[in-house]
Design a protein around this nucleic acid. Structure first.
Lengths: 179, 179
DNA sequence: TCTCTTTTTGAGATCCTTTATCAATAGGCC
DNA sequence: GGCCTATTGATAAAGGATCTCAAAAAGAGA
């Protein structure tokens, strides 16, 4: 099993192609600023940098992957590890990001302006794939109702082997084979 | 939010009542021994003790809860922390237990001899409730197929507020009220 | 039963992710 | 600009899970 899951989508399958997007009134930085103001929090350079950076790409990511992408210590716009974690929590609380857990690590993805979806997880290559299904939420709602539960959200993870990993590894034909 | 989720089912709702059970040919210890032999592993007292203990109760549990229940150091049948983790991994690998993650911790539950199910999680009291739904697995299978995915398992978690926590806290009537 | 080989165990250290502490810094409102 | 308070970064530490390795023990064969 991979020590650390691949959380980046393949560059040839941008997420917009897969699931489209949802109309929103404000850009993520605007939305975040609104949230901060409503909470009496301050709009710092670190928070501005992070919200912009995070919404400039669509991949799933974990804290470490994100920190790798941010400026390092002694570079301009450096953001310390605690601040990264703190700001991630705020982005989740504000509804901009969603957080879930995979293989013992917290994974984040866009929520604001992004359609509801669930995930397929390849146990071989560790990749996460998104899918959208209309029926799931309704099914969950029914189940919750039957159990006198007030549902707030659901999380469905389908584990298995993706098509790429499932292909039998082709024997590479040598020059001799082709004679 | 609770620092540590309650993983124990309430004593008045034993799991058999909720979901029944599945007929199996071997007892869990027998099944585990079979697995060990097939892997050329040895049947040690520690492994026997753990498989017996774990299947003597039906609750979900995490490693720490389990260790609390096991004999402590300098008592008979003490099992060290690394061995507990090692054996849990073997119980999962053998198909006796299922492992999943909740609030950053690994949680284990019976798999062998126990019907397929998913969970409701109360965000307030942290309790886990099980439910069985016939349609989910089929739905997942369809989704997997559409995505050229070879499904191995799924995991559905419905989060919300349980009926108990959802009840408006009744004002306790004082003696004076009743006059 | 004894011996031998190999697995397993337990003590302790260590890893890894995430969070807490706290003094110094800097927003934002007057 | 000045003040008050939130925020940051350095550092330590919490917490779960795993690694290392010498000692112990299981199982196979004699």
């Amino acid at each position: 099993m991979a020590k650390r899951p691949k959380l980046n989508r393949r560059p040839d399958t941008p997420i917009e192609q897969e699931l489209g997007s949802v109309e929103v009134a404000l850009t993520p930085p605007e939305r975040f600023e609104e949230y901060l103001q409503s909470k009496g929090k301050r709009n710092t350079p670190q928070r501005r940098y992070m919200v912009t950076h995070v919404f400039n790409q669509h991949e799933h990511f974990d804290a470490d992957t994100l920190i790798d992408q941010l400026p390092r210590k002694n570079e301009p716009n450096y953001i310390s590890r605690p601040t990264v974690y703190r700001t991630l929590a705020e982005l989740v609380e504000s509804g901009l990001l969603r957080k879930f857990e995979l293989e013992g690590r917290a994974v984040y993805e866009h929520d604001y302006g992004y359609p509801q979806h669930d995930h397929l997880h390849c146990e071989k290559c560790g990749e996460l794939f998104e899918f959208h299904n209309e029926d799931i939420a309704e099914l969950c709602q029914n189940i919750a109702q039957k159990n006198n539960f007030r549902m707030q959200s659901h999380r469905l993870l389908i584990s298995g082997i993706c098509s790429k990993c499932n292909q039998p590894r082709q024997r590479r034909r040598s020059r001799l084979d082709r004679i």
